[in-house]
Design a protein around this nucleic acid. Structure first.
Lengths: 156, 156
DNA sequence: AAGGTGAAAGTCAGTCAAGGTCAAGGTCAG
DNA sequence: CTGACCTTGACCTTGACTGACTTTCACCTT
């Protein structure tokens, strides 16, 4: 765990944890300077680790006095949260996005460690051995079914 | 007993024995270099001697800063039971037989209620929407992956 | 106002550094 | 001689990181 992206991620999450309203504002160039990296690496970190699937919202503004604002989405009550996640799944979903959703379920304590491991195992492309347009659709069906099962309901 | 694969195997097992947590991390290329072999030979060794049946779990990551992590699974009777079930799954499996296996996992207290519900949800033919020879094979892959995931570690 | 200027942030395709796969061929005990 | 096991390398996928180029905006200047 020693690449720059991970360090930046950790730093931002610490800032967020320390902030009262779950919202921080940074300047991209400053951050880049602090970590001795190019500014666009900040974008990379934001794009890969602070997505909606992960439970974050990122806004920004260019031009003089620009900024990047990162908000942590409120982890609200179970059902809302679950149906929200269900929406994110859609009719097809990539492995990456599925992983992010599972991670979020875990972070919100909606699933256990073991359950998260099981879910991640199932949505793996090595397991879902079918061609590509079909695989993402299949993954969506499966993820959806697993999430629904958390509600104690039968498939869609 | 002096082919390269055996040497690599012995070396890795020594490392594992020396490690405190029964877990080591290596870099594939480095290892290959140390033994003057092509990197893919490492994969061969891992695939043939560090399987779940042998009591190991291997994880890895690609890309810059990648690694291969080898974990030794604690050897208890749960594992025997699990790998036995794993055998029952085979290369393809019907929904009925899959359900029976899940039930057995539950009866043996190897999975929780929720986990069992999740597993049953996923192996449902309504979820696995593909034609019939393929569906049973897919179900086998999925069930297998889920059962295997039960062996994982807490840490991450 | 209109328009220029410079300071932000955004984009995206590309490079590099891993590890993964597979099929073809080699070796060796029986 | 043969089947099981070993070894190899060409090709693939993934993930981190980079930089040239683009877009946007506050603030001047005329």
């Amino acid at each position: 765990m020693s690449n720059v992206s991970d360090l930046i991620e950790r730093y931002l999450k610490e800032l967020l944890a320390a902030s009262t309203r779950g919202m921080i504002e940074i300047r991209r160039n400053e951050l880049a300077e602090r970590f001795n990296c190019v500014p666009s690496q900040i974008n990379y970190v934001l794009a890969t680790r602070f997505t909606v699937e992960h439970g974050f919202l990122v806004e920004s503004r260019r031009g003089g006095g620009g900024y990047v604002r990162i908000m942590q989405l409120p982890r609200d009550k179970r059902l809302d949260s679950i149906s929200q996640l269900l929406n994110l799944v859609g009719r097809e979903i990539s492995q990456q996005r599925a992983q992010a959703i599972i991670e979020r379920l875990w972070e919100e304590k909606l699933i256990t460690d073991r359950e998260s491991r099981m879910m991640r195992a199932v949505i793996d492309r090595e397991v879902l051995r079918v061609g590509l347009p079909a695989r993402d659709q299949l993954r969506a069906l499966i993820l959806r079914a697993m999430i629904l099962s958390l509600l104690g309901k039968k498939g869609e």
